[in-house]
């Protein structure tokens, strides 16, 4: 076990998978000579060469589209979108391509593409570069959508994403690259579509993922000092969505808060809450609470931007309200 950053964990997963399987290659904007705009693929170009670390034009439609085609034809492309905000330019290829090509032709093709995309707000990048639109992509059957919250899960889930025959959108959060965690040496794979208890507790359940996990862990520490122990369930994957551990936790706590960085309406919280009411109504003693982003395009001004994003204090407050 070594303590490494999220950036290193993702980088290691890519490096090891490329060493393991020659079919795996990377394509995207500035992934090669530049070394990745978030430095995830630094040194890859020198080591693996231009054929396997392919710098593309700034043209997201053909980045995802050509990766779809290469995946259909037996390669294992990892297509990097510099930010998830640019995925909207490739929306048709993701939604009408990656997610549907297998079903539409009666199972003749598989599309083992991984689309890596960086999302999240909080860096004063303005409205178009700060979004957390994860649920948009999770809406479509045929896709798998993963968003890890720890370096351990990032490495194990990215390896799983590369190895599965299904199309995967792998969402990273730009403010989390420096966050550290324990990661075992050598190869391991985490299962896709299995949520995970990231903190034990018996007073309240917090269901979250990605950046929300970090915030929730800190909120839990604050609550612990008041004698409130939160059990934290990390969804890790939005499609497939596994609520098994959340329901198990609810049976004990009977109270839950759902935390996400994205907007509230039609969000992860909305979906999770609806399913919990459908499947675990008898275990819920207090109305579920959602902590999410204020529904505005994120402003540039630092103070305003932070007002819009979910904060640790918001989670603490929501927990107190459900107790």
């Amino acid at each position: 076990m070594a303590e490494i950053t999220m950036r290193e964990a993702i980088s290691q997963a890519l490096w090891e998978e490329m060493e393991r399987d020659e079919r795996v290659f990377i394509m995207g904007e500035e992934v090669g000579l530049w070394g990745g705009t978030y430095a995830v693929t630094r040194n890859f170009y020198d080591h693996f060469g231009a054929e396997r670390v392919r710098d593309t034009p700034i043209a997201e439609g053909v980045i995802v589209g050509a990766a779809n085609g290469a995946a259909m034809a037996g390669l294992r492309p990892v297509a990097e979108l510099m930010t998830i905000n640019f995925a909207f330019l490739a929306m048709d290829q993701i939604v009408n391509g990656s997610a549907k090509i297998r079903a539409m032709f009666g199972g003749q093709f598989t599309v083992p593409i991984v689309i890596r995309a960086v999302g999240g707000g909080g860096r004063q990048l303005g409205a178009t570069h700060s979004q957390t639109p994860d649920v948009v992509f999770a809406h479509f059957p045929g896709m798998k959508v993963i968003a890890p919250g720890t370096p351990y899960d990032a490495k194990g889930l990215l390896k799983a994403a590369i190895r599965t025959d299904d199309p995967v959108l792998f969402i990273e959060n730009a403010t989390m690259y420096q966050s550290k965690g324990e990661v075992p040496d050598g190869d391991y794979v985490e299962p896709i579509g299995v949520s995970k208890v990231q903190r034990e507790g018996s007073d309240v359940t917090i269901i979250t993922y990605s950046k929300g996990l970090q915030l929730s862990l800190q909120a839990a520490e604050e609550l612990s000092s008041e004698g409130i122990e939160a059990q934290i369930i990390d969804l890790r994957s939005l499609r497939p969505l596994d609520l098994g551990p959340a329901i198990e936790s609810l049976k004990q706590t009977n109270r839950a808060v759902i935390v996400e960085e994205g907007w509230r309406s039609y969000g992860v919280g909305a979906e999770v809450a609806a399913r919990l009411y459908e499947e675990a109504f008898d275990y819920i003693d207090s109305p579920l609470k959602r902590v999410a982003q204020v529904e505005v395009p994120l402003p540039y001004n630092r103070e305003l931007e932070q007002m819009a994003l979910p904060q640790i204090g918001d989670i603490v407050k929501a927990v107190r309200e459900v107790l």
């Binding site: 290659f25 054929e51 439609g61 053909v62 995802v64 589209g65 050509a66 990766a67 779809n68 085609g69 290469a70 995946a71 259909m72 034809a73 037996g74 390669l75 492309p77 048709d92 290829q93 009408n96 391509g97 090509i101 032709f105 093709f109």
Partner: peptide
């Protein structure tokens, strides 16, 4: 025969990727 596609233009990127796979392999 890799298919007929109903979103106008959407298969052109696919074709580029399929050709890339041939070149790669």
């Amino acid at each position: 025969y890799w298919g007929g596609y109903a979103i106008v233009g959407s298969h052109l990127p696919l074709a580029a990727g399929i050709a890339l796979a041939d070149k790669y392999k």
